Amino acid sequence: MVQFGIDRLLLYASDWKAKRIGFVTNNAAITATFEPARKALIKKGFNIVRLFSPEHGLDTTGPDGHLMGDVTDTLTGLPVVSLYGEKLAPEKKDFEDLDVILIDLPDIGSRFYTYLWTLTHVLEAGALYGKELIVLDRPNPISGNLLLAEGPVLDEVNASSFIGRWAIPVRHSCTIGELAQYFNIERKIGCALQVITCTGWRRSMFHPDWSVSFIPASPAINTFETALLYPCLCFLEATNISEGRGTAVPFRVAGAPWINAGELADLLNDNIGKAVVAREVDFVPEGGRYAGISCKGVMLHVTDRYHFSAVKTGLLLIKLIMDTYKESFEWAPYKTFVNGKGENHLRLLLGQEDAEDFFRLSLEDFKERLEGYVSVENWREMVGPYLMYED
């Protein structure tokens, strides 16, 4: 049985539970029995006095990239300071009356998912204001298998943003607790940090190996399959192709009014390997790109998650669409609260200054170079000292 960091903490007779605690969390942070983490802690006598929420807000329902304001938690009555609103990092006034900062955020294993970067701002604030931080760890739902990690590793000089601040791969294969320790030491943050680990989890495990029920981490990450395909199809945000937002299957479909679904499905199945199958579909998004318009395209079905190369598949999908529909394909801006004009979105997602240049290669050269482009051979060596779980 897998126990999360929150489950283990609830078993402790913690000597700091009566201190004034700030809790960085949201509704997707639950116990193994599906109780909201903040409610379970308060029932056990933990003196939580203030909550902090990441993108999508405490209730995880805020639209992608939309500013979230401070609110009052309807479950506990506690004040909630938004860390995706007027500020991305806690200020001195937010921390000065607190003794301990507790963090429980459900990362989904992809660099451009912003909960991880909220964690880094909290780490820096903890060091700056002299507060102890305790991270309640959670398993990586798309596994901790370092052989499945995929880049490119982010170029901090030319492509740092809130969807990728620091140099890690797109699919990092770590837990949020492992990355907290990695960043704290390697970036010399110097925060007083403790990680309460999970038990029963091995790096080879995926979410279905420990739970039959997936808690939506945000509006568009509503199933395990979506989380698995997120580092594959999120790159479509930088194009004029729908990634399925506004449908029941976000990040599981790709389409546009000008695509021939059968043709694209055949193209993909001839090129993307045996771990995933493309099925032709027709869908009408209720919101987002092409809202109310029939889109033709494909739905991806991962048939072997233990060998599925998400990033490689996603980049090849874009290249095949780009070359097949030259007159219709376009790169597109993607506006969010942290990127008001939506500019350079592909560069920020890929973390590479030359992102569009890579797609200008011939298909033959693109396929030949793709393996090396996403390779992260030294990542395990870099993060190795901070790994806390067995393979």
Rank of each mutant, 00 (worst) to 15 (best):
M1S: 11
V2L: 13
F4R: 10
G5C: 08
D7F: 10
R8F: 03
L9Q: 02
L9D: 02
A13K: 15
F23H: 09
T25F: 05
T31F: 05
A32F: 07
F34N: 13
E35L: 08
P36L: 10
A37N: 01
R38V: 14
K39T: 14
F46L: 07
N47Q: 07
R50A: 07
R50H: 02
F52V: 07
F52Y: 14
S53L: 02
S53T: 12
P54V: 05
E55R: 02
H56V: 08
G57K: 06
L58F: 12
T60R: 13
G62H: 03
G65F: 06
G65E: 06
H66Q: 15
G69A: 11
V71C: 13
E86C: 10
E86Q: 15
D94T: 08
D94P: 04
D94K: 15
L98T: 09
D99M: 13
I101L: 13
I103M: 03
I103R: 01
I103Y: 01
L105E: 03
S110T: 12
T114R: 03
V122M: 02
V122W: 01
G126W: 00
G126K: 00
L128V: 01
L128I: 02
E132N: 09
E132H: 10
P139M: 07
A149G: 07
A149F: 07
L154A: 04
D155P: 05
S160L: 05
I163H: 02
I163N: 00
R165G: 05
P169I: 02
R171H: 11
L179T: 04
L179S: 04
A180I: 03
Q181S: 14
N184W: 00
E186F: 05
I189R: 01
G190H: 01
L193H: 00
V195L: 01
I196F: 03
R202Q: 12
W210A: 06
F214V: 06
P216K: 04
T223A: 08
T223E: 09
C234W: 01
F235C: 04
A238D: 14
E243S: 07
E243L: 02
E243N: 05
P250D: 06
V253Q: 06
G255H: 04
I259H: 06
I259N: 05
D266M: 04
L267C: 09
A278N: 06
V281H: 01
V281I: 15
F283M: 14
G287C: 11
R289F: 06
Y290E: 04
Y290V: 11
S294V: 07
M299L: 13
F308V: 08
S309W: 15
T313M: 05
L315Y: 03
L316D: 05
L317C: 13
I318N: 08
I321V: 15
I321W: 02
I321E: 07
M322N: 12
M322H: 08
K326N: 08
W331G: 06
A332D: 11
T336G: 07
F337K: 09
N339H: 02
N344W: 12
R347I: 08
L348D: 00
E353D: 14
D354V: 01
A355M: 10
E356F: 08
D357M: 14
D357Q: 14
F358Q: 09
F359N: 03
F359C: 13
D365H: 12
E368I: 01
L370T: 00
V376M: 03
E377V: 08
W379R: 07
E381A: 10
M382K: 15
G384D: 04
M388P: 06
E390G: 09
